[in-house]
Design a protein around this nucleic acid. Structure first.
Lengths: 263, 263
DNA sequence: CGAAAGCAAATTGTTGACAATCTCGCGGAT
DNA sequence: ATCCGCGAGATTGTCAACAATTTGCTTTCG
């Protein structure tokens, strides 16, 4: 029995195989698997596997894949199915830049409009994030950091920008070969606390600057991580013409199932 | 014979009924119809009609509708098909705000990176826009203005932000009951020229300020237009509890075919 | 031994028929 | 006269079978 990238997800007896509900289940499965690093850039999404994992019918799965493509998380190619996108360094930089633009706007607006309830919500998230870091629960910390940035955008009250930010954040795990932000190297909570303080004082400029600085740090860290990994890979087998060649490569695509098996 | 919302679009003999190509044809038809004000907020998109208009098979049409929903242009509801979205005043404001955020970022970046070729491209577009205005070709002027804003974003070199801006601009015709920007009331080319000059001098701040100011003016004009229209409609029949009620209304949905027929 | 051709399995794309649901006009009752 | 139920038609949702394409392996030839 082969292990699946997706969690067991035993279906409650009455769960429908199709419909809008099933479509959402598929989308969540993929997004969660990407966020948990069970799916990596370039991995193939095979309809049968998704069907077995989520219990959804083919129609629901195909719709989900089209929507995931619209979210920019997967790439559809004719007769060859769906791949998780493989952003190169340039595309990754653009995504960070877009995140900065969206969050800057949100923070400037938020400083002028946030109320005590909103501040409380943000504080609760960052405190939970801090506790998760201290206890070494990187998975939770990662999720809470994500919640924090998303909550800032949501509280700013711009739905289209928030949806866009959500899409960008779903791509984030694909920008670097391994998780960054849960390790000792990178710890965002101090800046998160400072950002909340700035918002409290109504200083939107400072909040925006703090946040953009954090995102720049994160970007730098992830790029270094990528470069290090790329060098490691290039050392033993230095014959590849370009890192982009994996896209047409054959057996490399097979490296799925959560653990990479480089040949 | 009933008139269609969609242009004739005689299919070349070898045109396929399905596949990626047909999907794109359907998407373009809908986007074009919205931009040309042949489709209005709340209109239903019926699979059979789309099929007849574009020559696409049902599969291609359903995929296209899912993608259009992802673009935020249509709303899908179970067993009831696809409707063009009906943004209320608040949602419309958010879309303008999002546009300002994206274009501000693009212009600040562009001022530092644009070259003579880019400036030439922008100048060509605005000059054509100006000529179109003078000759009263509002359709062309509208399209060229759109091209101008999109070109600025594209030249700034951020693909995700440009795609997002494209989606936002596709929704723009739905934010006001009738075309704004081709009438004598609103003329954007002087500001467009000034923005190019600012970019030429490397003054990104001024370019961003000019553009945001233009967008604010446009927003104000469109909101006034909306308010005026709403008042007109409310005068004869003042019993509606909320403008949002049309969403569940029955016969009002039937008001399609380019000309509205209020009962 | 390496490379090209070919074959079989796996995967995706498409179609048509059928089922489920919604819409809207019609008729009857209050 | 108005409201409620109802049923035919229209529209969307689902499925299973089939077609087309790709993929990876094997075979064969140089």
């Amino acid at each position: 029995m082969k292990p699946s990238v997706f969690p067991a997800l035993d279906l409650p007896n009455g769960t429908r195989r199709s419909g809008r509900e099933a479509e959402g289940r598929v989308i969540n499965s993929v997004v969660d698997a990407v966020n948990a690093f069970r799916l990596k850039a370039g991995d193939r999404l095979i309809e049968r596997e998704l069907s077995e994992a989520t219990g959804a019918g083919r129609m629901a799965i195909r719709n989900a894949l089209v929507r995931l493509a619209g979210m920019g998380l997967v790439e559809l190619s004719q007769n060859r199915g769906a791949l998780i996108i493989q952003p190169d360094a340039d595309e990754a930089g653009q995504m960070f830049e877009a995140r900065r633009a969206v969050e800057e706007m949100a923070l400037r607006k938020l400083a002028a409009t946030i109320d005590e309830a909103g501040l409380g919500e943000l504080r609760d998230i960052v405190e939970a994030e801090d506790r998760a870091y201290e206890k070494g629960r990187v998975e939770d910390a990662y999720r809470l950091s994500r919640s924090f940035h998303l909550a800032m955008s949501r509280l700013a009250g711009n739905a289209p920008l928030t949806r866009f930010l959500e899409d960008l954040m779903n791509c984030q795990p694909l920008l670097s070969p391994e998780r960054v932000g849960g390790t000792s190297k990178f710890h965002g909570t101090p800046t998160h606390f400072a950002t909340i303080e700035a918002l409290e004082r109504g200083d939107g400029e400072r909040a925006a600057r703090l946040n953009s600085g954090l995102l720049c740090e994160l970007e730098t860290t992830m790029m270094q991580e990528s470069a290090r990994k790329a060098e490691e890979v290039a050392r033993p087998a230095g014959k590849e013409k370009s890192s982009r060649n994996r896209r047409t490569g054959s057996s490399a695509q097979k490296a799925r199932r959560g653990l990479q098996s480089p040949d």
